[in-house]
Simulated assay, not measured.
Amino acid sequence: MRSSGILRFSPELRPGSHQRRDGGSSRWWLIIDCDPELGRYLRHLYLLAQHRTRSLQNPLWGPHISVIRDEAPADPAVWGRGDGERVAFDFDPAVRETNGFFWCPVECAAALTLRAGLGLAREPQPPLHLTIGNANR
């Protein structure tokens, strides 16, 4: 399936704050902010597939793709170029789970090109994925 989202560099965790609960920061993070309705739809499909016995909560940043996760670019002066731009991506709607987090695999050439342009490894670890929710209460 195909969708699109907005590039967000250094996304805030709370208004005015990049401070994480574990003491880290979201300063060197880049996410693709996705349509909330897409996340709601995929969480609903998951609920139906679980015979309405297991629901998911929305992720902190809403449905999103983590492109850069705490990796400082080779040249910090270029950080943020493209912030607010829309990018297209393809995703597999079959939901997967890792440690209570639910996601769908993603392909996004623009995100990989952006990583490479910032001097980072083209392929992130873990690979690109659309986070749709979690079971953590």
Rank of each mutant, 00 (worst) to 15 (best):
W28C: 07
L114Q: 13
R27S: 08
I31Q: 04
E85L: 12
P59W: 09
G39L: 05
G82E: 13
L114K: 12
S26P: 11
R54M: 08
D75I: 05
R40L: 10
S66M: 08
I68S: 02
R54N: 02
V106M: 03
Q50P: 05
F91D: 01
L47N: 01
R21D: 13
F102L: 04
R20G: 04
N58D: 13
L114D: 03
D33W: 06
G82P: 13
R27M: 09
H44L: 07
G119M: 13
R52D: 03
Y46M: 05
G80V: 15
P93E: 00
A72W: 09
F102N: 01
P93K: 00
D70I: 01
Q125V: 09
L112R: 14
A116W: 11
R86P: 00
R43L: 05
R86W: 09
S55Q: 14
A121G: 10
P93F: 00
P76K: 11
L45G: 14
D33G: 01
G82V: 12
Y41C: 08
G100R: 11
R81Y: 09
G117P: 03
C104M: 12
R122G: 04
R20W: 00
L42Y: 04
V78G: 02
H44F: 07
G84L: 06
G16N: 12
R43A: 05
E107D: 12
E123P: 01
H64E: 05
L45N: 14
E71A: 09
L38Y: 07
S17E: 12
R21P: 04
H64K: 05
D22I: 06
L114M: 15
L56R: 00
P36I: 08
R21Q: 13
V67R: 06
A94I: 12
W28V: 06
C108S: 13
A74M: 08
T98A: 15
R20H: 01
R52C: 07
C34S: 12
P124V: 07
L60N: 03
P59S: 10
G100H: 10
L30P: 00
